[in-house]
Design a protein around this nucleic acid. Sequence first.
DNA 1: GCGATTTGGTTGCATTAGAGACTAATTATG
DNA 2: CATAATTAGTCTCTAATGCAACCAAATCGC
Lengths: 158, 158
Amino acid sequence: MPAQISRLADFLPYLLSVTSNAVSGRIADEYNARFGLRIPEWRVMAVLGDAGSQTQRALVGATLMDKVAVNRACKVLEDRDLIKRSPNIRDGRSHHLELTVSGKAMHGQIMPLALEMEALLFAEFTAEECATFKSLLGRVRRRVQDLSPEGQMKDRAT
Amino acid sequence: MPAQISRLADFLPYLLSVTSNAVSGRIADEYNARFGLRIPEWRVMAVLGDAGSQTQRALVGATLMDKVAVNRACKVLEDRDLIKRSPNIRDGRSHHLELTVSGKAMHGQIMPLALEMEALLFAEFTAEECATFKSLLGRVRRRVQDLSPEGQMKDRAT
DNA sequence: GCGATTTGGTTGCATTAGAGACTAATTATG
DNA sequence: CATAATTAGTCTCTAATGCAACCAAATCGC
């Protein structure tokens, strides 16, 4: 290994991307292996389990995923009988989505695993470093939003 | 009522993913608009411009991208006459890849833009915070590698 | 109330990424 | 050397992701 290959390795957006992909990949493998869930599906489960009944619209806001991604995730989860739809009286276009009994059961297994994974991945961080990391991530993200060319709010979350 | 079952918004891997996607998306738009380059192509240009002639194999190591992604990026860049191949005397399977004259010209424009974007995105960070951020990212990434099930080294970089 | 506009959700299509098979060249083994 | 095992690169097929067009219900303006 040559000592210094390129300045690419010092480029923050590159480091961010590589790290994020490594972490996401590792976690995706885990969820897929244990529950047959992909990340978009997992995110929907997490939000519904935590915040209760939600419309797709609300899920888009909570997960920062594209509405198409949310829709597809919901369809998969519904087919697997992990969530169910009930009519939205206040708005006939949408439905309320919530975990079924088996969905809740899975959620009860999923969340501990999530926390376990998080603890494992960030085991070397002190509580303070975790807080710093979160804070820095939040600031960058807000910064990007502020800089974004006029209101263009694409949901690129994966 | 179990105390706070971890919300998605507090989950570090999620924050990391969302932030990374926001940053990557913003930068991708910029490169695409100005040079018609996508991120894999940009990364190859960056490495070749900085480190000179490289094989695809070396580019895989330097960019942490899949060999297929590197291959495709090289093909595109070659078609656009931004890089050229020359035979590798020491190994007939591979070629040396390097920037052409126009490739160098573009590289000369690209890199300042990259640094400009980085400065813009992280303008609110002090030098120390940038260093901290880099360090934390590096530690997480190494951690993931160390935890990875024995030797499986998928290159998931986007 | 009635047309125009907006919004939630869905579908289809195009683009992209990734795993695996395959070729050609190199290195290891006997 | 001859053969086996490895490696660099390429190709192909399939899955995933995102955008844009679209439909239906709700809201706005008169």
